[in-house]
């Protein structure tokens, strides 16, 4: 199943199951979505439930919040996470806070879908990852779907949660063919152990999952048996799964596409040292994007983010430097 098909299936089934589910965003209707995620939904559910909006991100989220207060379950699509900066006030100051401001009387069952990440030569203004920003906001739930299975079950959960969810996707994943697993007990807040191993825990999420899997093949050749954890949920963070893995492997590497300083990895490291400092046999290694706006030039673009090659190199270097 294609990643985008899994998202489409989740929205389609949710809309069929519950009339209060609506979607709105730029080109979600007649055009079928910028990444074909909402393909076929306009003709199936009509313009009242599949709403094409003007290019005005603040109003998309603002309208969606209004709908949510009035009893609907809106799914707002922001074309890319880069444009969500325009909707920040609505997301942070309104969506995230209404439950608290109203003393729990009002909930905002809103899902804001947005793709992000470094795609191919979209340059600095269209290549950002803002998961760190959203993950630092109390009142928001932040989910990051790296695969078709989580895209389907995670998005369905997000739609039917009564709190606002920022649902992060990655632009390079949409056309990828992926294995789809039927799940019976699904917990959107649980991290996935992608591969079990005993020597080293690698924590990652979104598209970096695939770079880590590539790197793993080489690390295996070098005799390193890695355990790979895909976070799935960035807020709340499944620190239990992480801590249990580190208790076993004693070593941890975080691989993230986003910039290093103040990134997701920094928060994870902080929580690891709070939770399992005495299990660590080496400093935690962060492999992250460089602290620069993403360059347009393809070679520089690849230099600015982790690649399988770089992941392998950095891990081997870190092991050598630490004598582990």
């Amino acid at each position: 199943m294609l990643y985008r098909e899994a998202l489409n299936k989740a929205i389609d089934e949710s809309m069929a199951a519950d009339e209060s589910v609506v979607i709105l965003g730029e080109d979600v209707g007649r055009y079928g979505g910028s990444y074909r995620v909402s393909e076929g939904l306009f003709s199936k559910y009509g313009e009242k439930r599949v709403i094409d909006t003007p290019i005005a991100e603040l109003s998309i989220v603002g309208n969606a919040i209004g709908m949510a207060i009035a009893g609907l379950r809106p799914i707002a699509e922001i074309m890319t996470v880069n444009f969500s900066l325009l909707a920040m006030d609505q997301i942070i100051n309104h969506a995230a806070k209404f439950r608290y401001m109203s003393g729990g009387k009002m909930t905002i069952p809103l899902t804001i879908r947005m793709p992000g990440g470094v795609s191919r030569q979209l340059a600095a203004q269209h290549s950002e990852n803002y998961e760190t920003l959203y993950s630092s906001i109390p009142g928001l739930i932040v989910l990051a779907a790296s695969n078709a299975t989580y895209a389907y079950y995670g998005l369905k959960s997000a739609i039917f949660l009564n709190d606002p969810v920022v649902f992060l996707e990655h632009e390079l994943l949409y056309p990828m063919e992926m294995e789809f697993k039927e799940l019976k007990n699904f917990d959107p807040f649980k991290a996935e152990i992608v591969k079990e191993g005993k020597d080293l825990t690698i924590i990652t999420y979104l598209k970096m999952r695939y770079d880590v899997l590539e790197a793993e093949k080489e690390l295996r050749k070098a005799g390193i048996d890695v355990e790979i954890i895909d976070l799935n949920s960035l807020r709340p963070l499944d620190i239990e799964t992480i801590a249990n893995s580190i208790k076993k492997t004693k070593k941890c590497v975080i691989v993230e596409e986003d910039h290093k300083t103040g990134g997701m990895g920094a928060e994870i490291v902080a929580q690891i040292q709070e939770k399992c400092f005495y299990d660590l046999d080496a400093p935690v290694l962060r492999i992250a994007g460089e602290d620069v706006p993403i360059p347009y030039n393809r070679k520089l673009e690849l230099l600015s983010i982790p690649t399988p090659d770089k992941i392998v190199k950095k891990i081997l270097k870190w092991k050598a430097e630490n004598g582990i």
Binding site: K221, V312, L316, K317
Partner: peptide
Amino acid sequence: TTVDIDEI
């Protein structure tokens, strides 16, 4: 991007 373990 290919990974050359020996080189590394």
